[in-house]
Design a protein around this nucleic acid. Structure first.
Length: 573
RNA sequence: GCACUCAUAGUGAAAUGGAUAUCACAACGGUCUUCGGAACCGUUAGUUCAGGUUCGAAUCCUGAUGAGUGCACCA
């Protein structure tokens, strides 16, 4: 039996006990993983219920212990009462401790839609996008692991006043004609610069109250919707196509696959329609000062009145988001719809989802916002093209440089391509772990020189352990006998045994940090075992075979967990 | 002004209301005739403050202090 099966069996027996002994229906029982020193599973049920039943926790614990012992459960080795009344279970080791099939969660067999990596097409791909991608990709992989039917989409921002500013800037300098023959890479850079410059110029116009210029730009914005053929539209389409291509290749490189894209220009049309349909007295949206707004109920002090369609008759971000939501449910009808986004978006999300819930209940009920933190930087190495926000490219390169330096001669035998890929994988593992080790939603103060130490709790440490495990297996391949197994009660074996339960919690709570913490515990125990034992010993084949079985199981768990975090477990490094 | 987050060793993090608060980095001290030293072992050090709820609080409530973010036509 694996740990999940044992847990549910124990739950059943404990409920039976309370029923037969006290005629008491127990609703929730906490059975958790304790620190390894306290056994394999623990429950505080006696502490929780002693008051209700008017009996001391110790006494209750003793009764429950006796009851369970009399049941002679073959998966329980021993039961101990510890501390104020905890019941600690020591379990009989499972001969094959791996999880079997899919760990049960509420997502099994459900339709899950995940939206992540939704950048503004005209802005350079920055570190924030990287955090978004890591978080989003984790959700995707966790849901797949849970046996959900997962669809992944991205929602690129392809239309906005901001983009109009960029187009205007390009037009102003005749950038279209000048650059059409340049490479995509050069142009991408050019678009990013135009965007930033355009935003800056617009601010100047506003400060100088240059109404003519502002109106020209607003006209560009209207032209982008493409109902009339114009030079603006030509420039826009040229730039958009190159940017989309670049986005695809970037996301592909990061290991993210997308089943579809919904562009902001599409959601704008849908959103406008829906908001207009629901505008009027006694309806959800109201007209005010030429715009269409949403006023939340008095009780919702945490959200503010917001504009959904502006007085230019164009949907704002919130209006578009309603459209996006509608399209998502029309196209995919998900049971769970996840959105990974910057935690600054939380108030906006609350607002539009509150309004959306009044149009269709399930839009609200089935939508979940997973915020990820912001990354701030301490290091001075990075140029600040985006007002202090480094591009993803810059960050990856800094980490990569460190990896190349560390790897030195170790990868000499590899081809240049193989070496390059591996170094990139290791660099990415460092970044992914640095981000996913923290609870989603909190900001990360990132100092590449400190945060990315390659010793101890780090991506490279996990990769290194993987390489070590692979190398041991390769060396000892011929020495594994199928009949030898360990006692199953070493710390390492018990840690492996915990894995299915950890996995279940990680998926259920969307908690990557718990998986990372577990992995450091696991690899730490393994490396300790490695340092203190001779794993392959030709003079002791029985022991060797048992050890290799343990190596195999450790690797199995490590590989699977790393995969969910978006990291490839390397065979050598 | 209103609202939302957050506050854990020198640093970065972990901890469904549970047991002696976990892990790493840094500092200091050790391990190597060894299967991969990007390794292993040890020492020092911590829940912002004041109350409250509870058998039990880093976690829940109230207040103070400090930091971040959002508040009508940008996304």
């Amino acid at each position: 039996m694996n740990i999940l099966e044992i847990k549910s069996e124990l739950t059943k027996k404990i409920k039976e006990f309370f029923k037969s002994e006290f005629n008491f229906e127990l609703k929730n029982i906490n059975i958790e993983l304790p620190e390894l020193q306290f056994g394999d599973l623990t429950t505080n049920i006696c502490l929780q219920e002693s008051k209700n039943l008017n009996i001391s926790p110790q006494e209750l614990a003793l009764k429950l212990k006796t009851y369970l012992e009399n049941k002679k459960l073959d998966f329980v080795k021993s039961i101990e009462i510890k501390g104020p009344g905890f019941l600690n279970f020591s379990l009989t080791p499972d001969p094959s401790p791996r999880e079997r099939g899919v760990v049960p969660t509420k997502y099994f067999g459900k339709k899950v839609l995940v939206e992540h990596s939704s950048p503004n097409l005209f802005k350079p791909f920055n570190i924030g996008h990287l955090m978004n991608n890591f978080t989003g990709e984790f959700i995707v992989r966790a849901m797949k692991e849970a046996g959900a039917e997962v669809t992944t989409i991205s929602y690129p921002s392809d239309i906005s006043l901001g983009i109009a500013k960029a187009v205007y800037e390009i037009k102003k300098h005749d950038g279209y004609k000048k650059n059409i023959t340049k490479t995509d890479e050069e142009n991408i850079k050019y678009f990013g610069e135009s965007y930033i410059q355009g935003v800056k110029e617009y601010k100047n116009y506003e400060e100088n109250k240059d109404e003519d210029k502002i109106n020209e730009i607003k006209e560009v914005a209207n032209n982008l919707y493409g109902t009339v053929i114009s030079e603006d539209l030509d420039i826009y389409n040229w730039a958009k196509n190159i940017n989309v291509k670049y986005l695809f290749s970037n996301l592909e490189k990061l290991g993210s696959h997308f089943d579809g894209f919904i562009f902001e220009s599409e959601s704008a049309i849908e959103g406008k329609k829906i908001v207009l349909e629901n505008t009027g007295e006694d309806k959800i949206f109201q007209k005010s000062e030429g715009a269409i707004i949403y006023i939340p109920d008095e009780s919702r002090k945490d959200i503010n009145t917001a504009v959904f369609i502006n007085s230019e008759n164009n949907p704002t971000y919130l209006g578009k988001d309603i459209g996006l939501l509608s399209l998502k449910f029309k196209m995919y009808n998900p049971d769970f719809s996840f959105v990974a986004a910057d935690n600054e978006q939380t108030p906006h999300f609350r607002t539009f989802i509150d309004a959306a819930g009044k149009i269709q209940k399930k839009w609200e009920e089935n939508s979940f916002f997973i915020p990820h933190g912001r990354m701030t930087f301490k290091g001075k190495k990075m140029s600040s093209r985006l007002g202090g926000v480094p591009t993803a490219y810059e960050v990856i390169n800094i980490v990569l440089e460190e990896v190349v330096e560390k790897s030195g001669e170790k990868m000499e035998s590899m081809s240049e391509v193989e070496k390059g890929n591996l170094q990139r994988e290791i660099a990415m593992s460092a970044l992914r772990i640095a981000i996913l080790r923290s609870k989603p939603g909190v900001n990360i103060d990132f100092d590449p020189e400190k945060s990315l130490s390659f010793l101890g709790d780090s991506g490279p440490y996990l990769c290194y352990t993987s390489a070590r495990l692979h190398s041991l297996l390769e060396k000892g391949q011929s020495l594994i006998s199928p009949f030898s197994r360990g006692e199953g009660d070493s710390q390492l074996e018990r840690k492996i045994f915990q894995f299915p339960l950890i996995l279940q919690t990680v998926i259920e709570e969307i908690a990557p940090q718990k998986l990372v913490t577990y992995l450091f515990g696991l690899t730490g125990l393994f490396n300790n075992f490695y340092a203190n034992n001779k794993i392959i010993d030709e003079n002791n084949l029985e022991e060797t075979s048992r050890n290799l079985e343990l190596v195999k199981n450790t690797l199995h768990v490590l590989k699977k967990a790393l995969h969910i975090l978006g990291i490839v477990a390397p065979e050598k490094m």
